[in-house]
């Protein structure tokens, strides 16, 4: 059986600055895909993980159980504060009050980027589908357009996750507009 985490890790190696990639995955390979993304270590790269599907701490704990170190990743958690009322967070997690505060996602990404001025930045958005639950497609389109192009102009790489089984035509259209490349795993 093909190990999706190895394949995703391989794709990570191929990412180039100022590019935006859409990663469509099936729910059955969700954590394998995250493992592949976060296992990717490059001391000159700052990985920023925007978590809106699963709380950042759940991802950190799940990765810890399978031996993946996430201490080099900065998480921007959009759901813990809203869903659990969580205020305190681990050092590498920044909480956003609500996934509807899309501007705050951009602001926190910019904050982390500024804190690592000498590193190439990789922004992983997990996922477009869950952000779409909380925001209508017009504001989502505007958000992705501004964020992706802003990051591209600064040489960053963007990886946007979406879940095949939850894919809507609107999300596909949005991703088509802002992605240079689409990679698909699972969900067949």
């Amino acid at each position: 059986m093909i190990d999706v985490s190895v394949q995703v890790a391989g794709e990570m190696q191929k990412l180039e600055p100022s590019t935006s990639t859409s990663l469509e995955i099936g729910t059955e390979v969700y954590f394998d895909a995250i493992k592949g993304m976060l296992n990717h270590r490059n001391k000159n790269m700052q990985i920023i993980y925007v978590a809106s599907t699963v709380p950042a701490e759940a991802i950190i704990n799940a990765m810890k159980m399978i031996g993946v170190d996430t201490s080099h990743v900065r998480f921007i958690d959009c759901i813990s504060s809203m869903m659990t009322g969580q205020h305190g967070s681990p050092e590498n997690v920044i909480l956003i009050e609500s996934p509807t505060m899309l501007e705050n996602i951009m602001l926190k990404v910019e904050f982390v980027r500024r804190k690592s001025p000498d590193k190439t930045v990789l922004v992983i958005v997990d996922s477009i589908n869950t952000l779409h639950i909380h925001n209508d497609w017009k504001i989502m389109g505007e958000f992705l357009h501004i964020m992706v192009n802003g990051l591209r102009s600064r040489g960053a790489m963007i990886l946007m996750l979406s879940i095949n089984e939850q894919q809507t035509q609107e999300v596909s259209t949005l991703l088509g507009l802002v992605s240079d490349k689409t990679i698909r795993y699972g969900g067949d």
Binding site: L102, E103, N104, M106, L107, K108, E110, F111, R114, K115, N135, D136, K138, I139, E142, F143, I146, G150
Partner: peptide, 19 residues
């Protein structure tokens, strides 16, 4: 614009209008 007062300084991004 929407702003954030952070230790890295004031950060600004355009206000999203959502159509």
């Amino acid at each position: 614009y929407v702003l954030d007062l952070s230790t890295a300084g004031t950060l600004l991004v355009p206000l999203l209008k959502g159509g």
